[in-house]
Design a binder for these strands. Structure first.
Lengths: 194, 194
DNA sequence: TCCGTTCCATACTTAAGCGTATGGTGGCCG
DNA sequence: CGGCCACCATACGCTTAAGTATGGAACGGA
């Protein structure tokens, strides 16, 4: 109990997973560059001496954390979206998911910003390919011919990543809840026909 | 003549502008973090002793370079896009410009990736607001009611930034010229009605 | 109880990268 | 032709963050 992932009561004896979760938290909140071992150690109530017992290097932690996130994200999509039979409903669910499940998307936004990092780049590539394939298939099943389905999928996906970039992180005046929902509705109308 | 901005023949005696152009080149090619004074000095064939004569600090160079870019970009839009009378033509031109004028967009992509930097953040904010206003106005003039125009503008703009993020930089399998043009055509069809 | 394994603290080294101090050289102007 | 100023080199210091070396404390099993 009290699986504290914040900066709080230091129940000594940490595990590798504790470091990974703390790393993901900082990653989503302040970006990849902020994932520093001494900083993390402070928020966990220990020193770097602890860190280098659990991980050989900072890169190892980053890789482990990102892998954990990717796996969770993949699991989410696989169980919540893939099973939806009707392609239009599936697309709608995909769009609507952006509003919920904040953490995962915030982390994705952080990774996008660090997409030139050698550890991040292949992850972005994999995720992008999976999402594009997912969207393309859905549009195909919704009646688009091959080329149009690919293009529409790309449009939808880039709108998603662009949205993350401008809103989830600091860069634009935030929208309130009502505006946001109206916007999502507009996007669904525009990008999902019929 | 021979306005060398690359790493080449060192005609000694540099000017502040030379540093700014070199900085923009590196910024677009390798990101903001790669804009380092010793590195730039090497590619310009001098040492940092030179740099700190022209600029008080690295931040000053970054600011000057970004300002220069923002001014050029603003000028472009103001003379090439704004004057177009028909809103639909104006929108089309806006979409098509992404394919040409590569440098400006590549730099914008780099700035987006560094949008958490205190010097970059206000620039992104200004540019985003201007583009959104521009798009919103065009959609208004094209017959959209107020809310829909804003939403469509946001959709178009995020699709633009998302596209930059995934294609202009390393992160996705590149599209060839034909695919790219077909995609732009699809986007225009989808986001510009009638 | 004792001992080894696990986990962590402290102190150190190393590598970049910014910034500074200071001196040198070439050209232009009186 | 001599001196001043713009431009640059060299050498150093400072800071940050990663990584290392080593020893200490706690906990479970024999």
């Amino acid at each position: 109990m009290t699986e504290a992932t914040q900066s709080a009561e230091p129940r000594p004896r940490l595990t590798a997973q504790d470091w990974e979760l703390a790393a993901l938290d900082v990653l989503g909140r302040s970006g990849l560059a902020a994932v520093a071992v001494e900083s993390l150690a402070r928020t966990l109530g220990v020193t770097k001496g602890s860190f280098y017992w659990h991980f050989a290097t900072r890169e190892a932690l980053v890789k482990a954390a990102i892998d954990r996130w990717e796996q969770r994200d993949e699991e989410e999509v696989l169980t919540r979206v893939e099973p939806i039979a009707d392609p239009r409903d599936r697309l709608r669910e995909l769009f609507l998911r952006v509003s919920r499940e904040a953490q995962s998307h915030v982390i994705y936004a952080a990774l996008l910003q660090a997409s030139d990092h050698p550890l991040v780049q292949p992850v972005i590539e994999r995720i992008s390919r999976r999402r594009l394939d997912l969207l393309t298939l859905a549009y195909r099943q919704a009646g688009f011919e091959r080329g149009a389905a690919g293009h529409r999928a790309r449009l939808a996906y880039t709108a998603y990543t662009g949205f993350l970039q401008l809103n989830q992180r600091h860069g634009m005046p935030r929208m309130d809840q009502a505006d946001y929902e109206a916007y999502v509705a507009h996007v669904i109308e525009t990008l999902i026909p019929e």
